[in-house]
Design a protein around this nucleic acid. Structure first.
Lengths: 340, 340
DNA sequence: CTGAAAGCGCTTACAG
DNA sequence: CTGAAAGCGCTTACAG
């Protein structure tokens, strides 16, 4: 059906093994006319190497998986993961690797993982992204040995990639202090043992840094409605010019903005707002949000980089990395003296 | 290194070919005890079939590609494509197929396509999404014969999947008429031969349907700034209670809203607004937008369905499909009589 | 019911 | 400089 080395060889009048060597360019050790004959024949016949055959010999599939959480009723939950994917893809492509998306519920180890990647040897490695329970980590790792853990709750010396979330908290604290606020309100919810690491790290990074300067971080709780809208029952009393509200992510920031607007409060003037995170959409929809950067494309790129390193030398696993962040100046917090 | 049939066979005390047959469950034609011995041995040793070897025999890679446009400076342009990807993935997974993301600039045929999928036989088929030039279509098709064209400008009898964009225009027209508007303004830009098919179809579907009822569709032009913000120079004069503005997509709707807000105009009251498209984000950020539905997850699911059909029987290619749309009631257009 | 052989398309030692 | 052989891990006719 498709053109193989043998077909090309027949046309070129050479043995198929010779054709293989010419095409793989083993040291230019052929007569130029022979080379040309082979190359022409291959092109004319539209020869394309069979990846499976090559894989069998080389033991490398040149395929990496990206494991994403597949939450029921949250089809779109992982939108940000796409940027990560593009970053990974961009890096892997350079080395001839392909990227396949694998989705899994959090209970995969109990048997609901259906993807073929767990049943056959198809992947050289797997990049795991986001929140899964420890059991899942162990199970996945036992099936696919070469893993990079990107933004998961796992943190070892090797193979893990995190955003430096404590630094995020400290950055927020620094700007709260620089602007002269004496009251700050955390709106990112209560930290418990099931939390994603970012929640604890942002919270304590912020709290501790503020405490060092004699400011106690206040907190308000939040509710999540069935339709995924965030509600902050105690928010109203904190719309004050002397206060800065700290949102866990842009969704939270948006919810605060909406609530404030409906009460006639103007962000930046009637209250301050800072956000610990950003998403690609915020560049278009709310570039003025005062926030800490979060380049998920870069995270993907680095995760891919670590994966390539790991595959290159599995014995010497890549050292874990923490990605730094920057403060992005916005117009949603100007300090406590700007009441109009 | 990894466990093969031979290792399992040795443990089970059988030939490796027999082990293969048992594991592939060829008609239960083995003694139960033999079967059990094999199955136990395989599990104990953690046997996993080698996909490459299987591929070599079956001539099927069980891999599908998703081709996305890779625009310089538009890293995040294709965010909506992720939902499509999830839809495709969900369907393919059921049949054991893997999905790989492939990105390409629009000039690939001139040589900037770097992905390995164009240089080796790795994919059983390719789903092409979005806007490329006809040259690219031809080139891609010549390299990878089994293609499904999802939301591209290509429209044949077979293998194409479109949203019914003319119906979108007609749906908008219908609701404009139902609400009693006599003036409607298209803000979706001028149609030319490089336009995506959706632009022409939405525009003419709307225009023709309105014309049938004696209403002439007005138009205003738009500019795109360097930072991707949309500007409508002639917009101001159209913020009138007797008028409905029709946006090409949610980005356009957002831009109109922002402009209106800055002029103290209240959407739904001071002017009407309808949108031809929706994105996942709009469910969270602007559920009240009066618009036509666009389920990209479903489009992905159907594209995958067509691909599986094509692979199942390449001789009988799947007939092209047009996906219908629904009107989503919002609060941004109430008819021309609601001026306050 | 089980085993031995052929072959999928390639690469890489080893001969000539 | 070119060719013939072995082998990657599997499946599937064909023997026994």
């Amino acid at each position: 059906m498709s053109v193989t080395l043998k077909h090309v060889a027949k046309r070129a009048g050479l043995s198929w093994q010779t054709v293989s060597k010419v095409l793989n360019d083993k040291g230019h050790l052929f007569r130029p006319e022979t080379r040309q004959r082979v190359i022409d024949a291959a092109r004319e016949m539209g020869y394309v190497p069979n990846a499976a055959a090559r894989t069998m010999r080389s033991k490398k599939t040149l395929q990496i998986g990206l494991l994403l959480r597949n939450e029921e009723g949250h089809r779109y939950h992982n939108l940000a993961a796409f940027i990560l994917l593009l970053g990974i893809n961009t890096r892997l492509e350079q080395n001839g690797y392909l990227l396949s998306v694998v989705r899994m519920g959090d209970l995969a180890c109990t048997g609901d993982a259906k993807s073929r990647v767990f049943e056959e040897r198809v992947l050289d490695g797997l990049i795991v992204f986001g929140g899964f329970s420890p059991d899942v980590f162990d199970w996945v790792h036992s099936v696919i040995p070469n893993c990079i853990w990107a933004d998961t709750n796992k943190w070892d010396e090797y193979c893990c990639l995190h955003r430096d979330e404590q630094q995020v908290g400290r950055l927020i604290a620094k700007h709260i202090l620089d602007l002269g606020y004496r009251r700050a309100v955390w709106t990112g919810g209560r930290v418990d043992k099931h939390s994603h690491y970012s929640q604890a790290d942002r919270y304590f990074g912020l709290k501790d840094e503020l405490a060092r300067h004699g400011i106690e971080l206040e907190s308000i709780s939040s509710l999540k409605r069935d339709d995924n809208r965030l509600i902050y029952p105690e928010l109203a009393q904190h719309f004050q010019p002397d206060r800065v509200l700290v949102a866990y992510n842009t969704l939270g920031a948006q919810a605060i903005l909406t609530t404030g607007t409906s009460m006639g409060k103007s962000v930046g003037w009637d209250y301050g707002l800072m956000c610990c995170d950003e998403t690609p959409e915020v560049f278009e929809s709310w570039p003025g949000l005062s926030r800490v950067s979060n380049d998920r494309f870069e995270m993907g790129y680095q995760a891919a980089e670590m994966m390539l390193q790991l595959l290159d030398n599995p014995a010497q696993r890549p050292v874990s990395r923490k990605m730094g962040n920057e403060w992005i100046i916005g117009n949603t917090a100007w300090g406590p003296h700007t009441a109009r």
